[in-house]
Design a binder for these strands. Structure first.
Length: 821
RNA sequence: GCCCGGGUGGCGGAAUGGCAGACGCGGGGGAUUCAAAAUCCCCUGUCCGAGAGGGCGUGCGGGUUCGAGUCCCGCCCCGGGCACCA
């Protein structure tokens, strides 16, 4: 302990006070302007880890800073409390997921308080709370009614050993089950989906309207994967071009309709619906064998194959009529064509597509170039720009022009049109798990899928269940849960046993925070309108795709359905993604056993030192290595601040201001300007550096022969405590209380006095040919002529010039003069 | 392959086109002390030089500019995203 600085006692005292007095509680009718700060919904993993500390330090700093700036800051906290770990623990130990989860919520809550983070705890929500489940289910029903939720067959991961479906995360990289080690295969099962693809365009376009890191925006754009092209029909024919007896035809999607004259074959996905009907009798046995083999393979096997050797396919015996040339081309099946994208069928143009080229060379199919490659081109398929060739009426047109002409032609023929496709797929939300939000529907033999009436929500999972080591959901074997009455016909019905993906819970929690007591609706329009969009969202870049995409989709859909304000198009106006914490180069994780427990640091150095170390180590969006975090340096600095503010450094007297005093007063106001600017721009590491420089100045000042002027150093110290309060809330609160009796955190943010930001003199750099040769103290207000005169009068400059005549003088008073010879 | 970031001392990192390396860590020296810890003060890119001083330095090669870590062009390397998506 340094000179009465009892870190543990001080931090405990203030944490208790903030919680007990509801210091950061904020009501929806608060007259101050609203500001919503939110850190991403944490999974309650027990004690906080370093990633949490980093995340919540930034969040807390903003909450405190904005509060001092006069805002009503909404700072809620909740827990994403459904999910796999609790259920796995239940299978292992038999402990109910709820008791397991509640204990971990308790631990994480207390960890967050120990780092000094402040919240409106009255608004706390948890995903597994019946009142939250109720509204998750209510929203699902609204989506169902609007056609945004639907049930369809989907390939899922099936583990033959466990006899159950697995989540993607449970399938290891080599395609085996994490629990049994069996090879997981694909099965088609009925699953629930959200129709996020309805919003693909908006999700893409509105990215431009939010203030997010470019990296995250790019990730989202890639994931949505918009592509522009054309879709058109091709008739199935025989080798001579005679139509198929049953008149079959299929659509193809292409981004390069301008290359259609170069189509030398067509490819259907092996799962394509037409395969069985068009395969010729003599090819049937081979085709069936091929389709069988492909379907058995796990998806990742199919997608991870690379290069020509792996492009496997088979001829169907059927042909398609190329509408551009009116010539038949052979139809193949190939595993590189996916049933889930476009129409599940392509026109193959090997001259301009490398995949088609690879396939064509493997199967000895012809290749026609329809775009003129540059003279020096020596590759295979040419995918670049150029003039159309071998394309009749398209010849000579540049790519863009040719594409437009080809689409116009397809439309005129009535066989196709321009088309936009997306990589984004619908969101599969069914999970065959117990510890999640039940999907509120029943299956009735007579009425089909029937939603549970709103007044019967929430549908809750029963407690008297047994967790099976097979990994199957215990709901499947619970008769009381399973057997239901159809709400429509009152006949017997079976309850859905799947639960929702936990990403559903985190897709609307930020809305619930605005109105967590609402009993009539998930949230009121007024409450959402008041607080949303979130002004500052903070979290890890690992959620750049899924969570952020889903939350954006929910917000748009809820707004369109009238449950959120119509104008609310984006939930998170500003996003900050903080870097991850590593140790010795690798990511800190329980499984690697390289965790540095924040609790140990909190016990030894305290929350302020830990927070300061995180803020100082590097810019907040950078990944950091714990080895670089200098907790001792932070502690040392805080002790310096403590001694300074306790008046233990140097001497002070009452007197009229001397130049040294004026300099400190100016430094004080420069500090306000600097720290304010740096907080606004998230430059916390340099904000800390600024405070350190200031403290170094104050030490020199107070220890100088003249000592400090009392009024000057008091103002300096008070200002220091105020600007540091958001970073290190405990020590500043304690020191401020000792000096003034009230709380530093209820002070208004200091404003720099413009008069004290004006400096009287400046150090002017004198360069000769761009190299610094002299530094001259000058009056800050000097003009170019005077600056030039002073520079040329410099002896050092004269030495450098060596009699040469200056060719040109660039003067930028009062900072710089550059003499060119 | 395409798309985003990023390469600065021993380390983490500073720097609106205008003094490269702020601030901290580590290291060195001094003060204090019986001694140590703690604390306080000073030094610390690199090469040449006894010194004054000078040369060289922000991944590499060019360019723009009076002046480039910063802007432009072409590469190299590292991190991340997408990737048989037609």
């Amino acid at each position: 302990m340094v000179d009465g600085y009892d870190v543990q006692a001080i931090e405990a005292k203030w944490q208790q006070r903030w919680r007990d007095t509801g210091a950061y509680d904020v009501d929806n009718d608060d007259p101050r302007p609203p500001y919503y700060v939110l850190s991403m919904y944490p999974y309650p993993s027990g004690q906080a880890h370093m990633g949490h500390v980093r995340n919540y330090t930034f969040g807390d700093l903003i909450v405190r800073y904005r509060t001092m700036n006069g805002y009503a800051v909404l700072s809620p906290i909740g827990f994403d409390s459904f999910g796999l770990p609790a259920e796995n623990a239940a299978i292992r130990t038999g402990e109910h997921p709820r008791t397991y989860t509640d204990a971990r919520i308790e631990q994480l809550s207390s960890s967050l308080q120990r780092i000094g983070a402040v919240y409106d705890w009255r608004r706390q929500i948890t995903s597994h709370d019946p009142s939250y489940i109720r509204w998750s289910q209510w929203i699902f029903k609204r989506f169902l009614e609007a056609g945004l939720a639907y049930r369809a067959m989907a390939p899922v991961n099936w583990c033959p050993g466990c006899q159950t479906v697995l989540a993607n995360e449970q399938v290891l990289a080599d395609g085996t089950c994490e629990r049994s080690g069996d090879l997981v295969d694909k099965r088609d099962l009925e699953q629930w989906f959200f129709k996020i693809t309805d919003y693909a365009d908006q999700l893409l376009d509105d990215i431009d309207t939010v203030d997010w890191p470019e990296r995250v925006k790019t990730i989202q754009r890639n994931w949505i994967g918009r592509s522009e092209g054309a879709e058109f029909e091709m008739a199935v024919v025989d080798a001579d071009g005679n139509p198929h007896p049953e008149g079959h035809a299929f659509g193809v999607y292409t981004t390069r309709p301008d290359t259609s004259f170069g189509m030398t074959f067509a490819v259907l996905a092996p799962e394509h619906a037409l395969v069985a009907q068009i395969t010729s009798p003599e090819r049937r046995a081979d085709v069936d064998a091929f389709v069988d083999r492909v379907r058995k393979e796990a998806e990742f096997d199919r997608l991870s194959t690379e290069g020509p050797a792996h492009k496997r396919g088979i001829f169907t015996g059927a042909y398609a009529l190329n509408p551009f040339t009116q010539k038949p081309v052979p139809i193949y099946l190939a595993d590189y064509v996916l049933t889930t994208y476009g129409t599940g069928a392509i026109m193959a143009v090997p001259g301009q597509d490398q995949r088609d080229w690879d396939f064509a060379t493997s199967y000895d199919l012809s290749i026609i170039r329809t775009v003129q490659p540059p003279d020096d081109f020596d590759g295979e398929a040419y995918t670049g720009d150029g003039r159309a060739i071998n394309s009749e009426w398209l010849d000579g047109k540049e790519k863009a022009e040719a594409i437009a002409a080809a689409i116009a032609w397809l439309e005129a023929q009535g066989i196709g049109a321009g088309k936009v496709n997306f990589r984004l797929r619908d969101w599969l939300l069914s999970r065959q798990r117990f510890w999640g939000c039940p999907i509120p529907v029943v299956y009735c033999d007579g009425c089909g899928i029937v939603a549970v009436p709103d007044e019967d929500l929430p549908v809750l999972a029963p407690d008297d269940v047994e967790f099976l080591p097979t990994g199957e959901s215990p709901l499947k074997f619970h008769e009381g849960f399973l057997r239901a009455e159809c709400p429509t016909c009152h006949g017997p019905a079976t309850r859905e046993t799947d639960t929702m993906d936990t990403f559903v819970d985190s897709s609307w929690y930020f809305l619930r925070f605005t109105d967590p007591w609402n009993d009539e609706a998930p949230f009121g329009l007024d409450a959402v309108a008041r607080w949303l969009p979130v002004d500052q969202y903070i979290g890890g870049v690992e959620h750049a795709i899924l969570h952020l995409m889903y939350a954006r989709f929910f917000t748009k859909a809820l707004a369109d359905l009238g449950h959120a304000p119509k104008e609310l198009r984006e939930p998170f106006q500003q996003l900050f993604t903080q870097g991850t914490v590593r140790l010795g180069g690798s990511r800190m994780s329980k499984s690697k056993g390289n965790l540095v427990a924040p609790e140990v640091i909190l016990d030894r150095e305290g929350a302020d030192a830990l927070r300061l170390a995180h803020l100082f180590v590097s810019p907040p969006n950078d990944d950091i290595d714990w080895e670089a975090v200098t907790i001792e340096g932070s502690s040392r600095f805080l002790a310096r601040v403590w001694r300074l503010a306790r008046g233990e450094i140097g001497t002070s007297t009452d007197r009229e201001p001397m130049p040294a005093d004026t300099a400190i007063e100016q430094a004080t106001h420069h500090l306000i300007a600097r720290i304010t600017d740096e907080y606004e721009r998230w430059h916390y590491n340099t904000a800390v550096a600024g405070c350190m420089e200031f403290v170094n100045d104050l030490y020199r000042y107070a220890q100088s022969d003249e000592g400090a002027r009392t009024a000057t150093i008091d103002e300096a110290i008070d200002t220091l405590l105020q600007v540091m309060a958001p970073m290190v809330p405990h020590i500043t609160a304690e020191l401020w209380e000792a000096r003034h009796g009230d709380s530093v955190h209820t002070q208004t943010w200091p404003v720099a006095d413009p008069a004290k930001l004006v400096v009287a003199t400046a150090t002017m750099v004198v360069q000769v040919n761009g190299k610094v040769r002299d530094r001259i103290e000058v009056d800050a207000g000097i003009d170019e002529a005077e600056a030039t005169r002073l520079a040329l009068a410099s002896e050092k400059v004269a030495g450098q010039l060596d009699g040469a005549e200056p060719r040109k003088v660039i003067a930028r008073p009062p900072k710089l003069v550059n003499i060119v010879v």
